[in-house]
């Protein structure tokens, strides 16, 4: 049975849409590359070259007539939504078993992209606050530090998201947020609400710390994705220094 063939341009659109959703929601670059390869191969395209960095996707495929088709996608905004990554990943596996027509596939990807049954801002704020409080305990704080760190972390994260939405300069948002966390920690400890200034600050800023970026950059580098690894590392260093400057400003008051 000869497999059904589709327009190459349509398949490219499917691939790029899938790649956009994955990359915009925090998938690693190598996972995006793998998924796009898989999708393109499930539509019987054999010459597939895909290049992904955290800010762009370049995809070239060769149709059956020998013509090359290329599409470039520039990424600007990034967030983390692991469920969307999982959904697109599962879709790509379904496609490998039984390819839908490109129109249906695109429709399904659009559904995933616009899906919004996820955790609300408030739920995430509460979650990150509790995580911040827990971190202050984890790094050696006492129980009295839990609530101050929770409040500081929650306020810091809230301010960070608000400023980020307002002016789109991540560096500045992180700096202001960590400055506020430091001030709050200083106020709390001087009011005898909480004991260790250090633990409250560490816990509070954990919501902003680029832990994921640090580890992902190492993984990308080890997997041979040098460009992606270095750009993610640059992002991590930038975030870390934003937090550092914010906290340093507070510590000079000591």
């Amino acid at each position: 049975m000869k497999p059904v063939t589709f327009q190459v341009a349509d398949i490219l659109d499917v691939c790029i849409a899938a790649g956009r959703v994955m990359l915009a929601n925090g998938a690693e670059t190598y996972r995006v590359e793998d998924t796009l390869q898989r999708i393109a191969k499930s539509y019987n395209l054999h010459y597939v070259n895909v290049f992904v960095v955290p800010t762009a996707i370049i995809l070239t495929v060769q149709g059956e007539d020998g013509q090359d088709h290329t599409e470039l996608l520039r990424m600007t905004e990034q967030q983390t939504n692991l469920e969307k990554v999982a959904l697109v990943n599962n879709l790509s596996r379904q496609l490998a078993v039984s390819p839908y027509s490109p129109e249906i596939a695109k429709e399904k990807i659009r559904e995933i992209e616009e899906d919004s049954h996820f955790f609300s801002e408030t739920q995430r704020l509460i979650a990150v606050s509790i995580a911040c409080g827990s971190f202050s305990l984890l790094f050696g704080g006492v129980l009295a530090d839990f609530i101050p760190a929770t409040i500081a972390g929650g306020v810091g994260y809230l301010v960070y998201t608000k400023i980020e939405k307002l002016i789109h300069v991540t560096f500045f948002a992180e700096m202001v947020a960590s400055f506020l966390i430091g001030i709050l920690a200083l106020v709390f400890t001087s009011l005898q609400f909480g004991q260790n200034l250090d633990m409250i600050i560490i816990g509070g800023v954990m919501g902003l710390v680029p832990g994921m970026a640090i580890t992902n950059s190492f993984r990308d580098l080890m997997a041979g994705h040098l460009l992606a690894g270095i750009s993610v590392a640059a992002q991590a260093i930038l975030t870390a220094s934003a937090i550092g400057i914010g906290i340093a400003l507070v510590l000079t008051f000591l």
Binding site: G26, T80, N81, L82, E83, K84, F118, F119, Q123, R124, A127, V128, S129, I130, A131, C132, G133, S134, F135, L137, L138, M206, G207, M212
Partner: peptide
Amino acid sequence: ASFFATMGFAILYN
């Protein structure tokens, strides 16, 4: 603490 910290980040990352 590590249990709640992990769950908190899991929710943050949706």
